[in-house]
Design a protein around this nucleic acid. Structure first.
Lengths: 227, 227
DNA sequence: GGTCTGGTTTGCGCTGGCGCAAATCCGTAG
DNA sequence: CTACGGATTTGCGCCAGCGCAAACCAGACC
């Protein structure tokens, strides 16, 4: 099962079977309870991580209290990788949302793997590039759009990234508090709560035990795109 | 002169002399007048670019009118690179600020170079990683800080990136309109104008022919950091 | 059952900064 | 010199959404 998982990850896409054996051999797999602190902002980076199951929240906080969610990691995604190629300090904090299964590789092992399979470096470059593009899109949204649109966009992005199709719509696969949603859309807990509750009453979404389901994605898309 | 320049760029850092010869041989160097459109958002990416002299503004615009400046490129920096490793479409638009000298490499040439000198891929990864970290910092700022602080931060970042030390302080090496400053700090032309004018009257900064000089960086830093 | 903790909802007042509009300044072209 | 266009400054009114505060709800623990 992890065997398939690893082979399916973008990080190791296009590698021959022999290489995947190397990868599997070097991996450490761990099952983590909810709210586990995987690494903290500013700590020296010694591993690269990938998520097999569950969800992880990546948060950055400033010297003042300000916190923002940089990203939620879903199954199959890597995280904590960039640090190994820059100043070797994690730029943000990673915490599990609910129970999760994580794979990780030591720095030496990773560089060894890259040395033998340069394709991995290109894969990472593709992933990081896409995340940069996404970050820039968020910057534009934060600069020019108002809260409702940003919230709608955030939900759609999450559904797109970690959505589980179901009878009543798409459910986001990991639990999210209102605070989480607020921090990813760049607003306050209170405003996020107001808007989401309104949407819930209107039947656009549904939240059950921290789990958000988009019942009318088209309506949300309309809000997100609307002039 | 370009010879030294290329060797000094982070993109080609750590390469042996022989490799630099390859790089130089494959480069196309162009002198561009001000306001030249180098590439547009959504266009297929065929080259990777680096700036030898002058400044370039990278702007992203949404389907609505919203525009935000993603970055200013100073001498020695590369740009338009990420596209070649993701969907092969430029995610933003690049325009020269004032006259500039640009070097570029075709896609085939770049991949060829990387094949022969894998170190280049790692260099790119470092650069892109750092930009991602910077983008995330901006996201946090936009989410949690108010306009004054963001403006101060933006100026400091620019000075840090493309500052020219002088008698009266640090001057940013390329011309910036109020609109540019507004778009990089995520506010409107009007608000940016008000704040900058106030700072100018207070002697914190000085603008002459679109060129901004920080006369009291410490004061700005205090504004940027202040509780 | 009672209590405690963490999340959520909701009301209310205040304000940062946006939007509109007008005036001004400056560089360039005629 | 004059006219014109782009950039900048500035005044004014308004409102989205933040901040504070209080109430509410649900699950966990005793």
């Amino acid at each position: 099962m992890d065997a398939d998982m690893l082979a399916g990850m973008e990080l190791f896409a296009g590698l021959p079977e022999a290489a995947l054996r190397d990868v599997r051999a070097a991996a450490r797999i761990r099952r983590l309870p909810g709210d586990t602190h995987i690494f903290g902002q500013g700590e020296p980076a010694a591993h690269v991580h990938a998520l097999v199951e569950g969800g992880v929240r990546i948060t950055q906080s400033g010297s003042d209290g300000g916190e923002a969610v940089m990203r939620f990691i879903g199954p199959g995604e890597m995280f904590g990788t960039v640090a190994l190629f820059t100043d070797r300090l994690y730029p943000a904090e990673a915490v599990t949302l609910g129970e999760a299964v994580e794979a990780s590789w030591g720095e030496a092992a990773l560089h060894d793997l890259i040395g033998r399979h340069p394709r991995i470096a290109l894969n990472i470059l593709g992933i990081v590039g896409r995340r940069l593009a996404e970050a820039q899109e968020r910057i534009r949204e934060l600069s020019t759009q108002r809260v409702e649109r940003r919230l709608a966009h955030s939900l759609l992005r999450l559904a797109d990234q970690a959505g589980q199709g179901g009878a009543n719509g798409t459910t986001i696969r990991f639990p999210l508090t209102r605070k989480d949603v607020a921090a990813v859309a760049g607003t306050t807990l209170h405003t996020a709560s107001r808007v989401l509750t309104a949407w819930e009453k209107a039947g656009l979404i549904l939240t059950d035990q921290r789990h958000v389901t988009l019942r009318q994605p088209e309506a949300l898309r309309r809000i997100a795109e609307e002039e």
